[in-house]
Design a binder for these strands. Structure first.
Length: 334
DNA sequence: AGCTGTGTTGAA
DNA sequence: TCAACACAGCTG
């Protein structure tokens, strides 16, 4: 996976132009005219050194206890990205923040290998979340995990694409609300369990996501509410959504089994949830098989099936919209 | 008590 | 915009 090495792993890769690490081995041993200078550059911090070792990485600052902090500046203000055991982890945290805050051409610390598909997915993931959310993940060291949980499901785009097709084709002006309607924000994805597709006729929504994206007023928790989700072909699914206090879980109940049946959902498949970025905040549901295509793989299919080399990119409201003769997709916003 | 992350400053 | 430095205040 591309550059998801914040937490434990060590190999990293972020697409970012062709940046090479310039700053290297200086900065690390300026202890006045000290004699014990070298110790700092090799080990994190020495027993009783006064001065903290500088990092060779941008956005990385030493902590008194030998750990490393990461920070980035935005709008004249420092944004703290958390503390890390390893200098490289802090450097990667900075890199990720830089990509989110400054776009994919941002200068990053590490030379990253080129993995177009994965990197594009990651950029899409990055830009589907607010700066605050990304910073949160970095500080909680959960970025890697959330990225892995989240590959974009292209199925969720077909419906609106179809309905807006004429507008794109005829090159007529498209209203702002329609554009917002096309633009969808990725919320989360769940790999469905055997019981999610079994006889219980319900889908468990992970608690954290449920409370974040589908808040349920306590008075309607037991009874539940009806939520509409539009699928990849524009069909609207209506599910009862409620809280089961017995199992302390949020679930989609009534209507869910029909979805399972019609889509032939199997355990291990992925179901994703999206929300339009317009004022109406419609929900969308998508799904794909266990090893289904990633966002970019599908994009490539779109390109080849349309027999075109280049996809026109229109940037509006901070969102890139890929336009082809027959379709439009929303991709990374900067 | 130890650590995080902010307040602050000077340099680029 | 950036990192160095000091340490207030938070956390466990």
């Amino acid at each position: 996976m591309a550059m998801n090495c914040l937490d434990e792993s060590t190999s990293g890769s972020i697409t970012s132009s062709s940046f090479t690490v310039k700053r290297s081995m200086e900065n690390s041993c300026q202890m006045g005219s000290g004699s014990s200078a070298k110790s700092n550059s090799e080990i994190g911090i020495e027993a009783d050194s006064k001065k903290l070792p500088s990092s060779k990485y941008k956005g990385v600052v030493p902590q008194p206890n030998g750990r490393w902090g990461a920070q980035i500046y935005d709008k004249h203000q420092r944004v703290w990205l958390g503390t890390f055991d390893e200098e490289e982890q802090a450097a990667k945290a900075y890199d990720i923040a830089a990509l989110r805050f400054r776009g994919q051409n941002a200068i990053t610390n590490l030379q990253h290998t080129l993995e177009p598909h994965k990197d594009a997915n990651e950029l899409y993931f990055l830009n589907s979340h607010s700066k605050d959310e990304i910073v949160d993940m970095l500080r909680k060291h959960s970025y890697t995990h959330e990225l892995e949980q989240s590959e974009y499901n292209i199925c969720a785009s077909h419906g609106t694409r179809k309905r807006h097709r004429d507008n794109w084709l005829m090159d007529t002006p498209v209203s702002e609300s329609e554009l917002f309607d096309v633009a969808k924000e990725y919320l989360f994805e769940k790999v469905v369990t055997p019981s999610d597709v079994g006889k219980l006729n319900r889908l468990v929504i992970p608690k954290q996501q449920a409370e974040k994206y589908f808040p349920l007023p306590t008075e309607s928790a037991a009874k539940g509410v009806l939520l509409n989700f539009e699928d990849s072909i524009g069909k609207v699914w209506r599910f009862r959504y409620c809280y089961w206090s017995s199992s302390q879980s949020y679930v989609l109940t009534k209507g869910w089994s029909k979805f399972v049946k019609e889509k032939s959902l199997k355990a291990g498949d992925r179901v994703s949830f999206h929300r339009s970025m317009g004022p109406d905040k419609k929900f969308f549901i998508g799904w794909r098989p266990r090893n289904g295509s990633s966002f970019v793989e599908v994009l490539d299919k779109v390109k080849s099936s349309a027999s075109i080399q280049a996809v026109k990119v229109v940037r509006l409201f901070g969102v890139n919209i890929l336009e082809t003769p027959t379709s439009s997709f929303v991709t990374n916003n900067i």
